[in-house]
Design a protein around this nucleic acid. Structure first.
Length: 941
RNA sequence: GCCUGUGUGGCGGAAUUGGUAGACGCGCUGGACUCAAAAUCCAGUGUUAGCAAUAACGUGUGGGUUCGAGUCCCACCACAGGCACCA
């Protein structure tokens, strides 16, 4: 069609004028179905082709569901608070609401031009006072139920810009705008008690149908861990220093403790700590770091020992040192840890740096335990020749392969002495230098030469060869091997013995062993062979002696709800010198943002609102005296945490949404959005809903059922689209040149919906060609009634396939099925009106404009009111079918069978094939497998 | 480091419960129509060998289970995304 843009406009106007997609609350004649797509932030850049992908997917679903007879709620709105609009306002000295108005106009126009079937009667923006009135009202409910509180929190602070930065703006530890180093600064902020909901948010996932990876994202973010709290005592003051650990089984291996630099016990003990100056200095040093730097892994560990206090390990009674270090965080667990350097990598690094003792309490187990084992103490000695970069091995040939030097320790013989002796006896080398020793390994094995099972505690040791001085070997009769120097590569491939392999690893990459194993050096735990039992036993012990208890911890923290910005919902709280923080009276809501033209942040990091004294100064709702408004605003996440509820009853001016409307729509049946929102936005929204549920304001604890996240549309160069890379595709240009239907079809055809896919203009043209072909089919129309006989089987099959594709969100195979049907029509001399109408109906959800137009030419009623086609299972059966004949699993021929043929007939036909005979002749036919209607496989020997 | 996902032609990707790997589209090659081009149509297109019939190889790598493996099991490699000193 060459007047494609006109046709599109015609139908867009038709749908709008007729309110074809209006959702009717309370309609009992049809089942409700709520389809939601994340409402966009209307940026100045306009709609992205990525938006088009997820909107089209949901639009297809909405159109199909309507045709299937559902009352579909498919709304759209604007998430318009946020930094970019504020930045734009600062630059151009206009109110951000003006920028939002302009951008919304652009976005809406673009959406209209793409033919999305939104119910525009429910449109709103989070920045509308009618909407944020209710966001503020809900904040007051949080406050009134003790869920909102003020607390001092560290924020990213740029000393040059004098501004608070979000973590994103402070990425890499430097200010995004000016590049100076970001530091931490304490600020009073409003907080929501989201951590109280950690367990409920975890459990609630069972009542959802989120995609598995989405659920995992939630689970990860909540970060539940089960462990123990253990009390350590400061002997001088009897103060308890409590730690949280998931490995209480390693308590005997604790050789020191580490607490966060901001741990409150430091202030409490300041009079007895003898190096407070040093401590203060370190605290200051930790403060100058941004959150990013502090959490950067692989950096050198730093810390300072608290001098002048005594702490003992509560089970071993040994003295242990207490350090402060920034590798321990105040906001997780108790802000203090017990350090087990042998079994925790971070503690290991710290111990190595400050030369602290390492006590092994868990041995890794190798080999398989057996009854009647003999116990031994052993060594594995690895000798390295630095000059030639080779390792000393002994090759037992068929009697055990290649190994390092092993041996049994005598009574009172140290591992080093034993190793030196064994090296000499077995290889004759005497001039070796001890380098290091690794952790003990508990090994089970069977010795062929002694016909005996052994369980050994083996010490791996590394030596360096100093000179080639060699004496005569001193071997037992059964020791038949050759001594060989080999490279690391040979060791990696030829040393198969688990103990020797591990030993090599241990001495060459010394680090903590965090895994499971056998307990040693642990008094009553000695001999336990797995973590689970050891932990259970230790917990019993801790409880008995009143030094510890089981404890569950969550990574999830309270939600920092304050932003020092202008363009957000004002927090409706008032501070009175006399009465403290007071909530605004609900009937005074909304608390409007002032109409001014200055939005620069203040020098001290307060919100721009703080400068607007007219607005700030007010009266206390309790005593009527002078008071000041809160000047921080809410985060961007606030408005998007409940917008899906508002869509259910968007024009309600009495409540945020009526219980009746929410009960009717029930919940969001299907929610699509970006991968980047599967963790935080979804968690905030669920928390918000669960809270409203608990105070009786929404009908369900989980108001979102299915959640799916789409992949990104990348640039043609397979890179993320960005202006700087010059690989941005503008949907307007595509619509203008190829039409909205082509763009929609291509975006559905491009690939797996959940996967990232690069843009290809060539493929887009292919979709245009497909739609042109559909149009050309009208030249093949005849006057016959009903469907063309030869097409009926395929038509039914295609309807079935499409149903399956759509239920799996496999939009690309949905399009592919339509192409197959179109090609089949194209192969016919002529088709009937019914044939054509069926194709147009099936194609309508993805290409609504041209199908409506062609359908109108046929003389039918508009497709948006059409019924979705169903298939007839009985018409799917093909009489004749081609199946493969295999010989030993390889396809050698294909045969055409009748569906009613007996197994014997099929078998005979298969064996009779020329090419099959070639592979069966002179061979014994072991068996013939016939899978009805699928395959024949002949097994020959 | 941990978690998750993905590895299939020149490219995007199909293959529903283990049953003819490469559907569909792009690109490419040849041909028709045309003065020519575009558009359209026809034929071909995993690799290698062969005129062909056909054969060997082929779904990241190495093993395994099975009459039969892209699909199931074990071990590993690469890439992408998320989280990250979480005790």
């Amino acid at each position: 069609m060459n007047n494609i843009n006109e046709i599109e406009k015609k139908w867009q106007k038709y749908w709008l004028d007729n309110k074809s997609f209006k959702a009717i609350t309370g309609d009992t004649t049809r089942k409700p179905y709520y389809i939601l797509v994340e409402f966009p932030y209307p940026s100045g850049a306009g709609l992205h082709v990525g938006h088009v992908r997820s909107y089209t997917a949901q639009d297809v679903l909405a159109r199909v569901k309507r045709m299937q007879g559902y009352n579909v709620l498919f709304p759209m709105g604007w998430d318009a608070f946020g930094a970019p609009a504020e930045q734009y306002a600062i630059k151009n000295h206009i109110h951000p609401k003006e920028a939002v108005k302009a951008n919304v106009k652009t976005f809406k126009g673009q959406m209209m031009s793409l033919g999305f079937s939104f119910d525009w009667d429910r449109e709103f923006s989070t920045t509308d006072p009618d909407y944020y009135k209710w966001t503020q009202w809900q904040f007051l409910q949080f406050y009134k139920h003790g869920m909102a509180y003020k607390a001092k929190k560290d924020v990213n602070w740029c000393p040059t810009c004098k501004s608070v930065l979000s973590n994103e703006d402070a990425a890499g530890g430097v200010c995004e705008r000016c590049g100076s180093k970001v530091v931490q600064r304490e600020k009073e902020q409003w907080m929501l008690r989201m951590s109280d909901y950690a367990e409920d948010l975890l459990k609630g996932l069972d009542d959802t149908n989120f995609a598995e990876r989405v659920k995992l994202g939630q689970i990860n973010w909540i970060g539940k861990s089960t462990g123990a709290e253990i009390d350590f005592t400061i002997e001088e003051t009897n103060d308890k220093l409590t730690v949280y650990t998931t490995r209480c089984d390693t308590l005997y291996g604790v050789t020191f403790m580490v607490i966060a630099p901001e741990h409150p016990i430091i202030e409490k003990l300041k009079d007895i700590i003898t190096n407070m100056d040093e401590i203060r200095e370190y605290q200051k040093y930790a403060k100058t770091k941004s959150a990013f730097e502090r959490t950067e892994v692989n950096k050198d560990k730093t810390g300072v020992k608290l001098q002048g206090i005594t702490v003992k390990n509560p089970v071993s009674n040994k003295d242990i040192a207490v350090y402060i270090s920034d590798y321990v965080m105040m906001d997780y667990g108790t802000g203090a840890i017990m350090a087990v350097p042998a079994h925790d990598n971070r503690d290991y690094d710290f111990a190595k740096k400050y030369n602290l003792p390492v006590v092994q309490v868990v041995e890794e187990i190798t080999g398989t335990p057996h009854e009647a084992e003999k116990q031994k103490q052993s060594i594995v000695a690895i000798v390295y020749d630095k000059k030639n970069d080779k390792y000393l091995t002994i090759n037992w040939g068929n009697n055990g392969g290649r190994l390092f030097i092993g041996g049994t320790r005598g009574d009172n013989e140290s591992p080093i002495d034993c190793a030196i002796r064994e090296i000499k006896e077995e290889t004759g080398y005497t001039d070796v230098e001890f380098i290091r020793e690794g952790f003990l390994i508990n090994h089970h094995y069977y010795a062929y030469n002694k016909n005996q099972y052994f369980n050994i505690d083996a010490t791996p040791l590394l030596f360096e060869l100093k000179s080639e001085t060699q004496t005569k070997q001193n071997l037992d009769e059964d020791e038949k091997f050759t001594v060989e120097w080999v490279s690391k590569k040979v060791i990696d491939t030829e040393i198969k013995d688990e103990l020797h392999k591990k030993s090599f690893e241990y001495v060459n990459n010394p680090t903590a062993i965090a895994g499971d194993g056998k307990m040693i050096n642990s008094d009553f735990l000695n001999g336990y062979t797995n973590k689970k039992d050891s932990i259970k036993r230790m917990l019993e012990y801790l409880k008995e002696h009143n030094i510890g208890r089981e404890k569950v911890n969550y990574r999830l923290q309270d939600w920092i709800f304050s932003r020092q910005r202008f363009w957000g919902e004002p927090i409706p709280m008032i501070y009175c010198e006399k009465c403290g923080w007071q909530p605004m009276d609900e009937k005074d809501l909304p608390l409007l943002l002032p109409d001014v033209a200055e939005y620069e942040p203040t020098d001290n990091g307060e919100s721009p609102l703080a400068k607007i004294t007219d607005w700030v100064n007010t009266t206390c709702p309790k005593c009527g005296g002078p008071a000041k408004r809160e000047t921080d605003t809410m985060p961007n996440w606030a408005g998007s945490s409940w917008y899906f509820l508002r869509f259910m009853d968007a024009r309600n001016d009495k409540e945020f949404a009526s219980m009746e409307a929410m009960k009717y729509w029930n919940r969001v049946d299907w929610y699509n959005g970006g991968m980047e929102h599967t963790a935080r936005h979804l968690l905030y929204a669920r928390f918000w809903v669960q809270f409203l549920y608990n105070i009786g304001l929404v009908p369900k604890k989980e108001m979102i059922y299915t959640r799916v996240s789409h992949g990104m549309v990348l640039g043609p160069d397979n890179q993320k689209m960005s202006k700087s890379k010059g690989n941005v595709i503008n949907p307007d240009d595509v619509v203008k040149e190829y039409g909205a239907d082509t763009l929609r079809t291509y975006e559905m055809f491009m690939g797996d919906y959940e996967q990232d896919v690069p843009w290809s203009t060539d493929s887009l043209r292919g979709c245009k060609r497909f739609l042109d072909k559909v149009e050309r089919l009208k030249n093949k129309l005849n006057d016959k009634k009903g469907y063309t006989d030869s097409l009926i089987v395929l038509q039914n099959k295609i309807i079935k396939d499409i149903e399956s594709s759509l239920s799996r969100m496999s939009y690309n195979t949905y399009i592919s099925s339509l192409m197959i049907l179109t090609n089949a029509y194209d192969d016919q001399e002529e088709i009937t009106k019914e044939d054509y109408h069926l194709l147009l109906t099936l194609l309508n959800p993805v290409a609504p404009h041209i199908t409506e137009e062609l359908n109108e030419e046929l003389g039918y009623d508009p497709l948006c009111y059409e019924k979705w086609p169903t298939y007839d299972e009985s018409k799917l059966i093909e009489e004749e079918k081609e199946i493969a004949v295999q010989v030993n699993g390889k396809v050698r021929a294909t045969i055409t069978i009748n569906i009613n043929d007996s197994e014997d007939v099929v078998k005979e036909q298969a064996l009779d094939q020329e090419n099959v005979k070639r592979f069966t002749e002179g061979k014994e036919i072991v068996k013939v497998i016939v899978i009805k209607g699928k395959i024949v496989n002949i097994v020959v020997k």
